[in-house]
């Protein structure tokens, strides 16, 4: 695939699909929009031909109307922004708590063999659990308020962050550590100024996966005793077969989910600009 050309030009990077990556970011963007555009066009077509009842596929105009409705007057006790805001505060509380505990935990597990042997099986065993399986327990322990919801999101985000941090420590370049020691650095200094920054790329990967896990748990967490939240809105609309509201909720959730991931990537870009460059 890679043809060397004369001169000093570097071979072009070829992606797995066999297509040359576009240099122009805008072009890539517009290509991404083609897929979305196709789906929307198909949706509009199905709606226009009226081959399926509104119950199955609400018309784009109904969804727009529902969007305007929930934005302006709200859906059952809250506008769309209040619903999204409530969900985001739950999600971010759980996520920030998870980051604050899982990163140190992962570091400890990475450095201490004993800690890893003791804690790793625990994490490996609870990581694959579907959150709904233990949600009722959380409710019995912590009540039906915000605490149990945040705890559920917290528990969803912890394992990927811990594991990523741990593997970051494991992949630490020993030469770098030893050089620092040789130059007279104290243990704490090595930890803070050498080990931690070296693990940052892995930590960020963990954070992205973690917020993704927490986000997919969001709807589950709002099954019980919520009266606000975008996940609850979708569930409640489902009970009354308001498919137009369900569409609004899903579109809003996918955009916010994408936005969160994007946000972490942007932060990552500024914090670890060296990522992927050895």
């Amino acid at each position: 695939m890679q043809l060397r050309t004369k001169g000093s030009r570097q071979p072009k990077r070829v992606s797995v699909l066999g297509q040359t990556p576009q240099k122009n970011g805008h072009l890539r963007w517009s290509q991404g929009l083609i897929g979305i555009g196709l789906v929307v066009a198909l949706w509009a077509l199905i709606a226009h031909l009226e081959v399926l009842p509104e119950l199955f596929v609400p018309r784009p105009s109904s969804v727009l109307r529902a969007f305007a409705e929930v934005t302006a007057t709200g859906y059952r006790g809250g506008t769309l922004f209040q619903h999204v805001g409530r969900s985001m505060s739950r999600l971010l509380s759980g996520f920030v708590l998870a980051a604050l505990t899982a990163i140190p935990l992962g570091m400890v597990m990475g450095f201490s063999h004993t800690a890893r042997r003791v804690l790793d099986p625990l994490i490996e065993l609870y990581r694959p659990l579907p959150p709904l399986a233990y949600y009722t327990l959380l409710i019995v322990w912590m009540g039906i308020g915000e605490a149990s919801k945040i705890a559920l999101l917290y528990l969803a985000a912890v394992p990927p962050i811990t594991i990523a941090t741990m593997s970051g420590v494991a992949a630490l370049n020993q030469q770098r550590v030893e050089t620092a020691y040789a130059l007279g650095a104290a243990k704490r200094q090595v930890l803070w100024h050498v080990a931690f920054p070296s693990c940052l790329p892995d930590i960020f990967t963990g954070l992205r996966v973690g917020i993704g896990f927490a986000y997919t748990t969001l709807v589950s967490s709002e099954i019980v005793a919520a009266a606000q939240g975008v996940g609850w809105m979708v569930l409640d609309a489902g009970r009354f077969l308001r498919t137009d509201i369900i569409f609004v909720g899903i579109i809003v959730m996918s955009i916010t989910g994408w936005g969160l991931d994007r946000f972490i990537r942007i932060v990552e870009h500024y914090v670890v600009p060296w990522k992927g460059q050895g």
Partner: peptide
């Protein structure tokens, strides 16, 4: 305050 609880969750609450 009116809360949305399924019967089993209501019993726990």
């Amino acid at each position: 305050t009116i809360m949305d609880l399924s019967p089993s969750d209501m019993l726990a609450a």
